[in-house]
Nucleic acid binder design. Structure first.
Length: 423
RNA sequence: GGAGAGAUGGCUGAGUGGUCGAAGGCGCCCGCCUCGAAAGCGGGUAGGGGUUUACGCCCCUCGCGAGUUCGAAUCUCGCUCUCUCCGCCA
């Protein structure tokens, strides 16, 4: 959520920023509603002040056994007026909040401007895509042949976009989860968190999934529960409504969770294989930082995610997303794209975003620099480190042999119980 | 699921209709004392919103939401959460 005071004081700057994302149209309406609200608020607060003063006077008169009927009757009339004005103020606030909650974050100055991924900028590449002496097969073919995944059974027990992992396929999934967690915990200094996979609505609003993207979420039962689309939601919201001591920052969490996405609007895309599933596993990195540190922490978060691909020896590139391709809440976002031989190009495997204070303002996550200092909003960041299913796909495809077997990346062998080849 | 108890500031804990945003204690901050520290002494110490060049002033908030009243932390109703006991259960 953007700061209403910032919009009030710098409407042109905000409008320009939002226009980079095609979302600047509501600012004038917002300003008008804001002005009207403040006008009505001043009126109703003056009346409330009068009520408070007179009520105290009534108390004094009664204590002195003096009749106060006139004052009481006068306040009854004032109360009617307060009630009416309060209603107007509340409905104006609802309209203001509806707009504020629907506005995306402002892009940072160095974010390339453009409507979609065509404007993204490649930052760097690591590793050389392997040249095959044979025609490389897609991961779904290799995996089904080796009995690592079963797409038909996934469809039978659940539906489209669900997959059953079996045998060494399930083992590989679990090995990757443990490998990534260990790396980030032991070498990158993150604290492990294992959160619930169901969260309440306030969490979803806090990180920006709601109210705008309800159709992408799975809602559970009659209650207030949502299946998490990413660990970002529960982990960032750990500190919702809190004021943290400044010396605790930066806070760095790593969490393995399953993730659940309705994939509304993705019908027909990536229908084969592990690339786009309703349920997938992911190891997620989350940081809470002081505002002045978030840019630096963003870069180091990307490097922490890159380290996973480097250790797995998977070729990848880092892409800076354009203003139009970034997620709703992001101010700046790097994607890590891994080389997939079956596609013949790079494919997103991690998304590392700096949200600045956008989520913190929604979720009321603040900190105090000094013990007596004023609370300020933290900056929140997160990134996949990495998406497990896409990593499995990348390993299967990049490590495939002519005979259809898969070499296990060296760092994973201990996590695979010493198995070096999947055949 | 059944029965009962509770929810007040960073923590603890008073407060059952009026001057209470809230006593006391702890913690924290500033000062005095000290070579320095501790102890002691004095003062300060919630969040949000509106307004103001500023000092300041005003409004709201005692789990959340309604209601009664001129006036609610205090009374009424609903909800959420926590604790104890029983049942069920991985």
């Amino acid at each position: 959520m953007l700061d209403l005071k910032l919009i009030r004081n710098n409407p042109d700057q905000v409008r320009a920023g939002l226009n980079k994302r095609g979302a600047g149209g509501l600012i004038d309406e917002l300003l008008q509603l804001d002005e009207e609200r403040r006008d009505k608020l001043a009126k109703v607060e003056a009346l409330k002040n009068k009520r408070n003063v007179v009520s105290k006077e009534v108390g004094r008169l009664k204590a002195a056994k003096v009749d106060a009927t006139n004052l009481i009757n006068e306040m009854k009339a004032v109360n009617e007026e307060i009630k009416q004005l309060d209603g107007i103020v509340r409905s104006l606030e609802e309209k203001i909040n509806d707009i504020l909650y629907s506005l995306p974050n402002l892009p940072q100055a160095d974010v390339p401007v453009g409507p979609d991924e065509a404007a993204n900028v490649e930052i760097r590449r690591w590793g050389e895509p392997r040249s095959f002496s044979f025609e490389p097969k897609p991961h779904w073919e290799l995996g089904e042949k080796l009995n690592l995944f079963d797409f038909d059974q996934g469809a039978k027990i659940s539906g489209a976009r669900f997959t059953v992992l079996k045998g060494l396929g399930a083992r590989l999934e679990r090995a990757l989860i443990n490998f990534m967690l260990d790396l980030h915990i032991n070498e990158h200094g993150y604290t492990e968190v294992f959160p619930p996979f169901l969260v309440n609505r306030a969490c979803m609003v806090g990180t920006g999934q709601l109210p705008k993207f309800e159709e992408d979420m799975f809602k559970v039962g009659s209650g207030d529960y949502y299946l998490i689309p990413t660990a970002e939601v529960p982990v960032t919201n750990l500190h919702r409504e809190e004021i943290l001591a400044g010396e605790r920052l930066p806070i760095k969490y790593v969490a393995y969770t399953a993730c659940f996405r309705a994939e509304a609007g993705s019908a027909g895309r990536d229908t084969r294989g592990l690339i786009r599933q309703h349920q997938f596993n992911k190891v997620e990195l989350v940081k809470l930082t002081k505002p002045e540190d978030s840019a630096r922490e963003h870069e180091s978060l990307v490097q922490d995610a890159e380290r996973v691909l480097q250790l797995l020896n998977l070729p990848y590139r880092v892409v800076l997303l354009s203003s139009g391709d970034m997620g709703f809440a992001a101010s700046k976002c790097y994607d890590l794209e891994v080389w997939l031989p079956s596609f013949g190009h790079y494919r997103e495997i991690s998304s590392c975003s700096n949200f600045e204070d956008f989520q913190a303002r929604r979720a009321h996550i603040r900190f105090r620099r000094e013990p007596e200092g004023k609370p300020e909003f933290v900056h929140t960041l997160n990134g996949s480190g990495l998406a497990i299913g896409r990593t499995v796909a990348a390993i299967v495809e990049n490590y495939q042999q002519a005979d259809g077997s898969i070499t296990v990346p060296e760092v994973l062998v201990p996590y695979m119980g010493g198995i070096k080849v999947i055949k």
